[in-house]
Design a protein around this nucleic acid. Sequence first.
DNA 1: TTGTAAGCGTTATCAG
DNA 2: CTGATAACGCTTACAA
Lengths: 334, 334
Amino acid sequence: MKTVTMADVAKEAGVSKSTVSQFLNERYEYMGEETKEKIKRAIEQLGYRPNYVARSLKQKRTYMMGIIVANIMHRVSTEISRAIEDYCHEHDMHAIVCNADDDPHKEKKYIEMLRARQVDGLIIFPTGGNTKLYTEMEQERYPVVFVDRKIEGVHIDTVVVNNREATCEAVSHLLENGHRNIAIVTPPLTTHPRKERLAGYKQALEQHGIALNENYMKSVEISAISYELENMFSLSEKPTALVAANDLSFFEVMSFIKRKQIRIPEELAVIVFDNIPFADISTPTITTIAQPAYEIGKRASELLTRQIKQEAIESELYTFPCELIIRESSAGRP
Amino acid sequence: MKTVTMADVAKEAGVSKSTVSQFLNERYEYMGEETKEKIKRAIEQLGYRPNYVARSLKQKRTYMMGIIVANIMHRVSTEISRAIEDYCHEHDMHAIVCNADDDPHKEKKYIEMLRARQVDGLIIFPTGGNTKLYTEMEQERYPVVFVDRKIEGVHIDTVVVNNREATCEAVSHLLENGHRNIAIVTPPLTTHPRKERLAGYKQALEQHGIALNENYMKSVEISAISYELENMFSLSEKPTALVAANDLSFFEVMSFIKRKQIRIPEELAVIVFDNIPFADISTPTITTIAQPAYEIGKRASELLTRQIKQEAIESELYTFPCELIIRESSAGRP
DNA sequence: TTGTAAGCGTTATCAG
DNA sequence: CTGATAACGCTTACAA
């Protein structure tokens, strides 16, 4: 299977390579009708297929963007990635998705890899562990957009959600239902959103004049959640409501609840921060703080595109609001 | 930001381009220690970053594979894609994922697009609507692996699961629990796996000498499922068990069940064909026919790699077994 | 052990 | 309106 190139097409059609190139790029303003016809025929005849690698080399543009996700296990990451991919496909681009697995070394490797592949820009859910690299890209003015997590001290377009306010709203909802013993489970406080969610929780309690109780606030690895819940539910004063700060924590919580046969929402009201695909159809349905994944992905893509086109002036921070969707799981009263 | 090329590095290090190239490709068998040092320093100094596009053009290999998924909304598709991506990253490759959205035109567009980008091969969840294109690739010996769906008359490596047997096993399980009125809901019978799943259902009933009942067998678009269920559950003899032939149908079924307040498994036993992420933690837990997504993805990747390396002799068909995971939702007895 | 030079398949810049 | 010709940045024989 010899590959057929533009030169072959040119020869077959009896024109020059440049004319064929013009034709392919639809720049036929000054092109004779019959020339067009000849070229079109030659292309069909030979089964010519353009080589975008060659084109990219010349144009210094690959029409690809890279997406580096901190941890693909979070549902919302895949939703945002999908939104970005949709945007790409609508704009004749492609996306390459990489999973950094919460590991800064992997993240670094992928950034380098994707840049070596000459992707036009990068959308990163940053691990936070590569400040130097981030700054380098900022200074080179290489197109980058951060998503989900804000990184201090780096001036790069960033799209996040109002973690604090949304959590505060959710906890207030529980307070208004009469709950006073409200627990929160988060992963370790290694990222900005997690800190903000916890801060939102505290803020709500303070606003209602409720004292914080360390026993109800656990920020631990997923694998340790079940242990902490054991302790929490052995307290003389058990929590009557619980907020899971993300989907993975929620799964742990649910499996604990199931094992202990705790009834939701009668014995425990539950709210999750994150989009849960079955929130609507499970029994009970689950109250969630929903992130607008589609909008986030779209905005990130637009920002990146703007940078690629060199239309960006200054880096900006976009904060999307989350939506508290009240369902059955938070309906309990203490 | 002028891009720094190999030539710059060569000049800085006082050697030739080819020596730098050797160095980068770790072919330093005959390279002087000090030459190495000089080059390494020059690279750091200049912040040189290799350009894989140029390399690809020369080598006629991009170290990328394309994945074209018939419909990304199916959980199992994303699981398999992820497994393929994992394999890629372990083997210094990258994957580009495209969603054909069950549309043969889109599929065609993506196949052409990805080939223009010179991906080394394609893993396709075929829509089935591009036989001509499939055959073309077969004849060109372009590396392709089909996943999930077998296409008749095309000789291409294919990885599928034992749809018929697995469904038969699941239905037999219901029969053994005493059910006689077993319904099945599938999407329209436009693909091989769907036909096979229905066939497995029929086979089980026949083996138990139960007559087929058209009222219990519905193969319709997702949007029409709810309507069909209305009818089905208005029958004088309602089904006591139901099999959802994939995850999307299942969601419809669940939302119907929830609306009608049908109790699972007491009033209706339910089994789903497909991996459902919350099967384990929902109430009740859900009996599933689980596809080995990881193995499927891995095998597909291996087959493709073999083809890319030109080690493949003949196209093969791999059929992986599914696992019936019995949980609470199928525990009911009529 | 290292250098030279010829591509890889396009596009871009000028002439004509 | 079309055609030469020179890049794009790298790899790879082959020479030295």
